[in-house]
């Protein structure tokens, strides 16, 4: 059977939507000063910001996996009451404006914050305006993506495999490590990539909670914003780098995990 032709009233808005999404990116490519690309890319601030971005996004993803996978398991498998409330709370950062998240983190972990003051008095450690703050801000914003993704994978996985493991002598922890986790590995990987991409692009919570210090807290999105005011050419080049990283992430996601996960 042939697919039906797209009706005209849908075709026009669809084409507009494509143009709207693609043209800005095309414009970015058109305006890129290709001849100066090498010079601009090797400017001292760029490498520093890119390295900081990659390191902090990767750390935020690791923290999200270590904490988020167990949380997803609790949301998907435990029979504890109040799970619906817990899920709603956990997903708030998904819809919360990141700036608000940054303010909230500041109020809790800042020098005068509820936990921050105690931490500073007890250990002398202050978190705001450090690279640690960048990682915390990114984790706060990005972890829900991983939790939602892994919870979905856990719900879709056949829990009877866990019964089978139990009849083979595996306790619940062994079952989680050797059966459940491998079964949802594609979901964890997809969630981690989403989480990493979200952390890489994080702006609002980072600038609010961690500030904008080159070398310690100035990540790529912050550098782009700042460069746009001083040196638009540099902003374009930095944006191009982020675009390339994003597209590479998307391709990785589609080919390596989403495609395989959908086929399984």
């Amino acid at each position: 059977m042939r697919r039906p032709r797209t009706p005209a009233p849908l075709l026009v808005p669809a084409a507009l939507a494509v143009a709207f999404l693609v043209l800005p990116l095309a414009g970015l490519l058109v305006r890129t000063p290709w001849s100066q690309l090498g010079t601009l890319l090797t400017a001292p601030g760029v490498g520093q910001a890119l390295r900081l971005s990659l390191v902090s996004a990767t750390l935020a993803t690791l923290v999200s996996v270590v904490l988020g996978v167990p949380l997803a398991w609790v949301l998907a498998r435990s029979r504890a009451r109040g799970r619906a409330v817990l899920r709603a709370l956990v997903t708030v950062p998904l819809v919360l404006p990141p700036v608000v998240g940054g303010v909230a983190l500041f109020l809790v972990l800042g020098r005068q914050g509820i936990v921050g003051r105690w931490l500073a008095e007890a250990t002398g450690i202050t978190i705001p305006f450090t690279t640690t703050a960048v990682v915390i801000a990114e984790t706060f914003v990005a972890m829900p993506f991983l939790v939602i993704s892994v919870e979905g994978a856990l719900r879709a996985a056949d829990a009877r495999y866990e019964d089978a493991a139990a009849t083979l002598g595996a306790d619940r922890w062994t079952t989680f490590r050797r059966v459940t986790l491998p079964l949802v590995a594609p979901g964890v990987a997809a969630g981690a990539v989403l989480c990493w991409a979200r952390a890489l692009g994080e702006f609002g919570a980072t600038i609010t909670f961690a500030g904008n210090f080159p070398g310690t807290t100035q990540t790529m999105p912050l550098a782009v914003y700042l460069a746009l005011q001083r040196d638009p050419q540099a902003a374009i080049v930095l944006s191009l780098v982020l675009l390339v990283v994003s597209v590479a992430t998307l391709l990785l996601l589609r080919d390596r995990w989403l495609g395989r996960g959908a086929a399984a």
């Binding site: 495999y161 493991a165 009849t167 491998p182 079964l183």
Partner: peptide
């Protein structure tokens, strides 16, 4: 030892 209806061999 238990044999399940659709075998439930671990796919991974």
């Amino acid at each position: 030892g238990m044999v399940f209806q659709d075998h439930l061999l671990f796919p991974h």
